[in-house]
């Protein structure tokens, strides 16, 4: 388990990371979200031992990074932001250096390099100078370096940045596969990725942790979570609105749009939970004009914006202001 405790980093008078605490367990992918400059990379640099915290502590498997830096780093794989690599080295030479620095030699070194090359689809470019590779390939080379020693803990700063859609997919698949026995902390600006691979997500803004929840839990905080959108082929809006307002568990009915042909209404349930939406929908079975309906699952980008949008980084949601049912 990676345990981060009250981690703080100041650069001069600027506090880049402010008393951040969280844990990542084996078998878990933790997404790290936050606007530019929020402190994601700085936090990761401290976890991997590149930067020293101003205060607070980091431990892996109970070993304190400050006390056993080499031991801790042995268990870590790190993909830094922007995937730095040596442009003058070949792919193979670079991976060989990383393997040797991690103490592999002879046959085990060959095996590790071979496995990393295969997993990251680098076979066509092994003998090429890294400087002549495209950005996506460079990203993969750096990715290969981070998983070379099959570490139990992985820290990845924007691992899919610069990859094409196929590669993004591959990397996500790989992360999902690896997450079975590893603890993975990854930062990203792609919110779909959080839904796709993360069991849990942290949102950080101005160095402060403002949410630590499952993606579902975060979406639940969205103002539209659990609302029902109905498309009806009947233009007599007022009558419809009255009828739906009379339904059980419906708190409010909003008219989203109306044209000659159809009306779009939004039903806001009294309680924001899937079961409630289902009960409302079951009352609509006899509704002949109903063309289609959808239950909103909430949107991460809306939550992200509302949590991080304020100038001081604390959005309009606070702990006790969550919608009922979360």
């Amino acid at each position: 388990m990676i345990r981060v405790d009250e981690l703080t980093k100041t650069f001069g008078s600027k506090t880049a990371v402010d008393k951040v605490s969280f844990t990542v367990k084996r078998g878990e992918v933790l997404g790290f979200l936050g606007p530019n400059g929020a402190g994601k990379s700085t936090t990761m640099r401290m976890i991997t031992g590149f930067l020293r915290p101003t205060s607070g502590s980091i431990s892996i498997d109970g070993l304190l990074l400050a006390e056993k830096p080499v031991e801790v780093r042995r268990r870590l794989g790190y993909l830094p932001e922007n995937a730095p690599v040596y442009p003058d080295m070949t792919v193979e030479g670079f991976l060989a250096f990383c393997a040797e620095a991690r103490g592999y030699r002879g046959k085990s070194k060959k095996l590790k390099i071979g496995a990393a090359i295969e997993q990251c689809f680098l076979a066509p470019v092994v003998h090429q100078r890294i400087g002549t590779l495209s950005k996506g390939y460079r990203q993969r080379v750096c990715f290969a370096q981070s998983i070379l020693h099959d570490p139990p803990y992985l820290v990845m700063d924007e691992p899919t940045d610069g990859l094409d859609p196929n590669q993004k997919h591959e990397v996500r698949e790989m992360i999902r596969r690896m997450s079975r026995d590893k603890a993975i902390l990854l930062s990203t600006h792609i919110l779909d990725e959080v839904d796709a691979v993360c069991q849990r997500a942290l949102i950080i803004a101005n160095g402060r942790l403002i949410a630590d929840d499952t993606p579902e839990g975060l979406r639940r905080r969205s103002s539209s979570y659990g609302t029902i959108t109905l498309v009806l082929g009947n233009a007599v809006t007022d009558r419809l609105k009255k009828r739906f307002e009379a339904l059980e568990e419906v708190k409010e009915v909003q008219v989203v749009s109306q044209t000659e042909a159809e009306v779009i209404l939004r039903l806001i349930p009294a309680r924001r939970e899937p079961a409630s939406a289902a009960r409302i929908l079951s009352q609509l079975e006899a509704e002949q004009d109903l063309l289609s309906f959808a239950v909103d699952r909430g949107r991460l980008d809306e939550i992200f914006r509302s949590l991080t949008g304020g100038s001081n980084g604390t959005g309009r949601f606070t702990e006790n202001d969550q919608p009922a049912g979360s």
Binding site: T48, G49, F50, R73, R74, P80, P84, Y86, Q145
Partner: peptide, 14 residues
């Protein structure tokens, strides 16, 4: 300049 220092100093090396 290259940022590779981040890799070198996070390898298990003193």
């Amino acid at each position: 300049r290259l940022g590779t220092l981040e890799i070198v100093l996070t390898l298990p090396l003193k």
